[in-house]
Design a protein around this nucleic acid. Structure first.
Length: 887
RNA sequence: GGGCGGCUAGCUCAGCUGGUUAGAGCACCUCGUUUACACCGAGGGGGUCGGGGGUUCGAAUCCCUCGCCGCCCA
């Protein structure tokens, strides 16, 4: 006998270990099985599981379990990302906490060794947390982006792109993060709105004939100004173009130039040009061949290109000093408060500076073209589809991708420099040396590029690098392209787009056929969860409190498309209760001898109740299958919820009780067998979403009755494929009548406060022959649930009997002694009014010749039936009401 | 400034290609321990589907417009 509730704490680890040890997570090697693969969005190796991971991985697990049960060779390939900046940050912080030497004191080799050490120690955290969720990843194929195989893929990709001139080295402005002292890509820059000022500075004309006023939000950059620009059409300045101003503080003459860039409407119409520290000014500088004076060092401190009193100052200190000096010089013309957006590093949070450096760039625009076409052609589809717009928007405006990072943790760039600075880009140092010898005519020592690659450069290869590419492996042949990618919208640009570009370029195929974009999990009030807000819900705490199944079901049921998930505990609790409900329904079946019958055929059952539930089971199975196949996760979960709770538990089990305890041995046996069959189907359908409780119930019911065809784990059991002809409209009608009779009858009883102990007969006053037969035959079922003594057919309702109408039949409950006349009059009056309103609405519709002429025949017919039914019901109740008036 | 998403019961959300008396869960009120389950059962109250136009025989659903709210890009 089952316990009263499921105990996730003991069952989950046991079941997971059993699955894992059995090898069930690996795809079948049956060559006939259709491959179905997904690759995990590799979490940062530094990470621990947050609620977003829980959602994302639950959905992946639901999908992979579903497809595995459908007989596919289902591969869910797991792994982690080395996450350059994030990991380097974590380890540096840890070193500092432990009082170790700093990264720089330690040196590159020692530091990188420390990071590997750290990875060996704590890199497995998130992977183990995924196990607690129930994720059925194939751990035997687990990968890490810095694995040797993946690193080889990275080198090959870099070298090939370089040879194709799609990777090149260039000196230009990059977004520089002074905290980490590295370049970052456009995507890693976050525009934040901050309060700032416009400082208006006067630059005296060189010839002493006056001044020109410019405004800036970054005064310190004036130290690197190399021109003042005005619009060529700006009459105010026409005469000044070609002249020079003397740059205050620096005391250097700089030209006044005409360029399209300044907006005459804004400020004074004149702008200072600092080509080395502003993206727009850089472009102006290029057009006019202006000198580019770099003012900063890697820490954004002022360098030796500035006047001596500024050297070594922090940029913000220098800013103050510049303002003070302008004021002292009498050249400060005004200060204006303003809100403006300032670029910040997304990891460091510090203000990012445009900084002139040598970096490696990928010609993303070239790679983007086929990636755009692939989505246009439908080779890869987004679900929900509207995300394609976001993808296109970015891809069509893509900028060169800066891929070099001045970090130590990551894939070292495979470029070696000769003494003259010439770069040899090869997959190995040996190859580079060989090329150098050819080039220089003698063996020449080379020095490898110090930089590493953007983490996303390697994760962009993830779908195929993890499968062994560039080797032609069996996995690559079988599982690439992958089928579905499930990920968050926040990394469509970072990751999805890069995978598309690199995947198509290097394999000639899209990396995945479908991208499902999952929602963002927020707290119950809709706020984004963050540590600083303190509203973070730790998925592992939730698993502890409610079990993994409850959390999984919640996330699945709430994963409606294009919507945030507002997660709250009562919701999870409710779905935990749902698991308990199923558990107890199984317990009930077990107590009542429900056991699988040898050779049971659901199509052959005869009792209407059994025929009905078999049909409903088929409908549910079909709906769930369709939903899951189309990533309709919430639909699948909600469909199962309704079927299991509102149909199986509320009605089938209740209506089955008389059969299970009755004298009709044949009906009893059939019901027992049917219940067992339905339960097995339920467990199967629910398994992808709630794997633990279903597997446990599967095991606990393994010995009840005939052995299952599939002897092993539920997780590897075949998915139900039920024929549509299991649905029997006659059984539906019959059970529908019974359910309505009970529901409406209860409403009457409770509306009149008839005590539960009262057991009047149910009178059938007027009904079709078929209805009469159904009601009489089902007296036992109805009796129990409506608490009536019998079902009796009568010619007319006795005085004081309370009538109600169900499916055109008039039924009545003789409960005169309990009636409060006024209450009953009110009830009948309300019913009649409702019906009258409906009649009115429907009659109007039918009276409209346009409706009758233009609406489809079936809709018109439906309305006619509806009108007739409502009128009949109203007449009956009206008559009862009149009798009541007479009383 | 450009784009995207949302606005349906007190709360969280379903309602997909127009035809249901607009649904569910939670919360609320009343009743109930009938041998699966109180992590339960039964019944009930509660919404002019953000505002305004339009298309249509018919609009929560399609179109236009306005208003909020959120996100992304500049």
């Amino acid at each position: 006998m089952l316990d009263k509730t499921f105990d996730p704490k003991s069952a989950e680890p046991r079941l997971y270990a059993a699955w894992e040890n059995s090898g069930a997570f690996s795809p079948t090697d049956d060559p006939a099985a259709e491959p179905f693969s997904i690759v995990i969005p590799p979490p940062n190796v530094t990470g621990s599981l947050h609620i977003g991971h829980a959602l994302n991985n639950t959905l992946q697990d639901v999908l992979i379990r579903f497809e595995r049960m459908r007989g596919k060779a289902a591969l869910w390939l797991p792994g982690t990302d080395h996450a350059g900046i994030a990991t380097q940050m974590v380890v540096e912080r840890q070193l500092a906490e432990r009082g170790n030497r700093s990264r720089r004191d330690m040196g590159r080799d020692e530091f990188v060794a420390k990071v590997w050490e750290w990875k060996a120690e704590s890199g497995g955290t998130i992977v183990n947390q995924l196990r607690r969720l129930g994720a059925s990843c194939d751990w035997s194929r687990e990968r890490f982006t810095l694995d040797e195989g993946l690193s080889a893929a990275v080198r090959k990709v870099f070298v090939q792109l370089h040879k194709e001139k799609l990777i090149y080295r260039d000196k230009r402005l990059v977004n520089w993060d002074p905290h980490f002292q590295t370049a970052i890509s456009d995507l890693e820059v976050e525009a934040r709105e901050v309060d700032g000022h416009y400082w208006h500075f006067a630059y005296p004309l060189e010839d002493g004939s006056g001044e020109i006023v410019v405004a800036t939000t970054r005064p310190e950059t004036m130290l690197g100004d190399t021109a003042v620009a005005v619009h060529p059409s700006d009459e105010r300045y026409k005469a000044l173009v070609g002249k020079a101003v003397r740059l205050p503080i620096v005391n250097r003459p700089i030209p006044i130039i005409a360029d399209e860039y300044p907006d005459p409407e804004k400020g004074s119409g004149a702008v200072k040009i600092t080509p080395a520290h502003d993206f727009n000014d850089f472009a102006v500088g290029k057009r006019h061949n202006l000198p580019m004076i770099n003012l900063f060092d890697d820490f954004a401190k002022i360098n030796d290109n500035a006047p001596p009193e500024y050297r070594g100052l922090d940029r913000f200190v220098a800013r103050k000093k510049v303002i003070e000096q302008f004021e002292a010089l009498g050249l400060l013309r005004g200060i204006e408060k303003t809100k403006h957006t300032v670029p910040h590093g997304d990891r460091s949070g510090v203000v990012v500076e445009p900084y002139l450096t040598d970096q490696w760039y990928v010609a993303a625009d070239v790679l983007a073209k086929p990636a755009i076409k692939a989505v246009e052609a439908g080779d890869t589809v987004f679900v929900p589809k509207h995300w394609e717009k976001t993808y296109f928007e970015w891809m069509r405006n893509i900028q060169p991708w800066c891929v070099s990072r001045q970090l130590w943790w990551g894939h070292r760039i495979p470029a070696w420099y000769g003494p003259d600075g010439k770069a040899f880009v090869e997959e190995t140092e040996a190859e580079a040396l060989k090329k150098a010898e050819e080039h220089y005519g003698r063996p020449t020592p080379l020095k490898q590029d110090e930089d590493v690659l953007d983490t996303w450069f390697s994760s962009g290869l993830w779908p195929f690098s993890t499968m062994g590419w560039p080797e032609k492996t069996a996995d690559l042949a079988r599982f690439y392209p992958t089928h579905t990618l499930i990920t968050g919208f926040d990394i469509i640009f970072f990751w999805v787009a890069r995978m598309m570009m690199q995947g198509i370029h290097f394999t000639g195929e899209v990396p995945f056929k479908r991208v499902f974009i999952n929602a963002l999990v927020r707290d119950a009030t809709g706020a984004k969860m963050s540590k600083s807000k303190g509203n973070v819900m730790d998925p592992l705490d939730l698993v502890d409190e409610f079990g993994a199944d409850a959390l999984r079901f919640t996330l699945t049921a709430m994963s409606g498309q294009a919507r945030d998930i507002k997660l709250s505990k009562p919701r999870i609790e409710g779905y935990r209760n749902f698991g308990t409900k199923l558990w107890n329904a199984t317990r009930f079946c077990q107590m009542n001898g429900c056991a699988r019958a040898e050779g049971f055929d659901p199509a052959a059952v005869t009792a209407p109740l059994n025929r009905w539930i078999v049909g409903e089971t088929q409908r549910t199975a079909a709906a769930v299958t369709t939903a899951l196949a189309g990533c309709g996760f919430d639909e699948a979960a909600n469909g199962l919820y309704r079927f299991i709770w509102n149909q199986f538990c509320d009605w089938y089990v209740e209506l089955a009780k008389p059969l299970l305890t009755g004298d009709d041995a044949a009906a009893k046996a059939e019901t027992q067998a049917t219940a067992a069959w339905v339960l097995d189907v339920i467990l199967t359908l629910l398994h992808p979403v709630m794997p633990f409780i279903t597997e446990e119930l599967w095991e606990q019911t393994a010995d009840l009755g005939a052995a299952r065809k599939h002897g092993g784990f539920l997780m590897t059991a075949p998915w139900p494929d039920l024929p549509e002809n299991l649905v029997d409209p006659a059984a539906d009608a019959e059970i529908g009548l019974i359910i309505e009779t009970i529901t409406e009858g209860r409403s009457v009883r409770q509306g009149l406060n008839v005590p539960p102990s009262a057991q009047p007969p149910l009178l059938v006053v007027e009904a079709s022959g078929a209805q009469q037969a159904v009601l009489e035959r089902s007296a036992a079922l109805i009796g129990r649930l409506l608490r009536v003594s019998e079902v009796r057919v009568v010619d007319a309702a006795p005085a004081g009997a309370i009538p109600y109408v169900v499916a055109g039949a008039t039924l009545a409950l003789p409960v005169a002694e309990f009636i409060d006349i006024a209450a009953e009059r009110a009830r009948l009056g309300k019913e009649v009014a409702n019906l009258a309103a409906d009649i009115d609405r429907t009659a109007k519709k039918l009276a409209n010749p346009d409706f009758v002429a233009r609406a489809p025949e079936e809709v018109v017919e439906e309305n006619r039936d509806r009108l007739a039914d409502a009128q009949a019901a109203r007449d009956k109740l009206q008559a009862a009401l009149s009798r009541l008036e007479g009383v």
